[in-house]
Write a protein that binds this DNA or RNA. Structure first.
Lengths: 295, 295
DNA sequence: ATCATTTATGAACAACATGTACATAATCAT
DNA sequence: ATGATTATGTACATGTTGTTCATAAATGAT
């Protein structure tokens, strides 16, 4: 028996001066209203109502109690409404994290139309290559390559992304073009540090899949930076296809080992596995899936 | 599962950032605290807390909810306290009714020491010979001869009171002293109108009990007034013994039919049959029982 | 990196409470 | 005096509660 229900029953009966009318107003039986009020009187150790079979009146104590519990009941209803509204409104802060290599352009381009469509939402983008503990950092959503291993989170697949190995024609003319990935061990390989495993380059698929450990004289935490450096002739780089695309188009870079590419890496949106996600978080996830997904 | 209990559990867990600590603070099991908070989240359709096995943090919604429910919980506790204090304090109004014939002196003499002992109590004496509907008139206590027939009320016996039939020696010398009560039919009988049945005078006890219908040329709604008129020689009166006592002492009245008195009438305190009487009502009832009772 | 400890919660269940249905007593209107 | 309506007592089938035990996971210590 819920105390708030008891108080509502008392308030309705008092307002109507009748158990039958009060109960009808609340959509409960007369017997139940009687039980609720009796329970309240018992808990308070005070008579709130005097009643005969046809007459119900407030005692002095009951009147004093009614004066005070009516505003409380109103405040409770308001509290419920506040939470419901907050839950349903497409407004408020969203704190999103992404690796620096991704967030500087592609993600921003994806977030911009969402922000514009929902001006009440306030997006805070936290570029970080560390795997932030989401709960502690107050992060609502992470966009990442590879699903995080955390039982409290779920990962929603956004898109596949090709990783390509590239070099400039100048570099290849001077150092020779490696025929097999294993030959990379004797080449100057430029490391992209925001990658989960920057020096472990994976080739092939299925049972033919293998990893080659590489190294070199330059590393940066920016796919764009290492692509640029490769285009300048310094060495061989691995980066997302979309990052290298401008250089590929104008001939400053070319793709190596195209027949031996491994599975593309998957971009995920990662968020707490709660049944009570706010509307705005859910909306952003759907939006990102639309931006990065097929179509 | 009480909603207020759920809110208290949430507040305690949030304050301690721990289900285990919060539960201990409330004196409930960790499992139960977990259930309460989950229930609250389900009812609100919102995640209030994020939790791992060793870490509990508030969501934004949870923080907003906590801000609002803490004052509400305080107000509930205050409401409970207000009623308890009101119930236990010897203070406040008491509305008491009594017949005019009684209240003008004897009852006032009884109420005076009670009032003096409890200055915070405010006694309102409503003298009325009508049987007031107590609930409707907002009457807390009635002092009456004869218990009221009402299932919602209880009657506490205060004391017995003799009713005597009196006449002055002058009247008797002029009109002759009636030997049997039946002779009253030919006498001038003065009626005391605050009596329940002013013209039905009862004599004898048990199987010998009988009623004589009387009448005369004077009636008043005051026992003292009719006693005074009898002492002046106009006729024969029936009144409480205590009213006639001063005239009996100085020989201005004498008692008739002393061997044939009926049962004395009983004075009652009548009040609502509630298990939740306020302290002051109960105190006054006890006081009156002490004043009018034996000793 | 591994292991131990602590925490939050899933699952199961005996005990208790709930809300309903029916009957009854009492009050008020006719 | 009688009938209609109301508040509540009683009984009970059903649902909920709070506990206990087990488990999975996270954090701290080594």
């Amino acid at each position: 028996m819920d105390k708030l229900d008891c108080m509502r029953a008392f308030a309705a009966v008092a307002a109507q001066s009748s158990f039958t009318s009060g109960a009808r107003q609340l959509g409960i039986s007369t017997k139940l209203a009687s039980k609720y009020v009796a329970r309240l009187e018992e808990q308070l150790g005070a008579q709130l109502l005097n009643r005969t079979t046809r007459k119900v009146t407030l005692t002095d104590t009951g009147r004093a109690y009614l004066e005070r519990c009516l505003p409380l009941l109103d405040q409770f209803d308001e509290l419920q409404d506040v939470v419901q509204l907050r839950q349903q409104e497409l407004a408020g802060p969203i704190r999103i994290t992404a690796p620096t290599g991704l967030g500087s352009r592609e993600l921003v381009e994806a977030l911009q139309p969402f922000q514009q469509a929902h001006p009440k939402v306030m997006v805070e983008l936290v570029l970080s290559d560390r795997h932030l503990p989401m709960l502690e950092e107050g992060v609502d959503l992470a966009v990442r390559f590879g699903a995080l291993k955390d039982s409290t989170l779920v990962a929603r697949r956004l898109c596949s992304m090709r990783l390509v190995v590239v070099a400039s024609p100048e570099y290849l003319a001077a150092e020779g073009e490696p025929v097999e990935p294993e030959a990379l061990a004797t080449h100057n390989c430029l490391l992209q540090m925001t990658s989960p495993q920057p020096d472990a380059w994976v080739f092939g698929k299925g049972v033919a899949q293998r990893t080659v450990t590489v190294g070199g004289s330059f590393r940066a935490n920016s796919p764009r930076a290492v692509a640029h450096m490769a285009a300048s002739g310094l060495g061989i780089a691995r980066c997302p296809h979309y990052t290298a695309l401008p250089f590929l188009r104008d001939g400053r870079l070319q793709v190596l080992f195209e027949q031996q590419e491994t599975d593309p890496t998957t971009l995920f949106a990662v968020y707490p596995s709660s049944r009570h996600l706010t509307v705005r978080i859910r909306a952003l996830i759907d939006h990102l899936a639309g931006c990065f997904g097929p179509g």
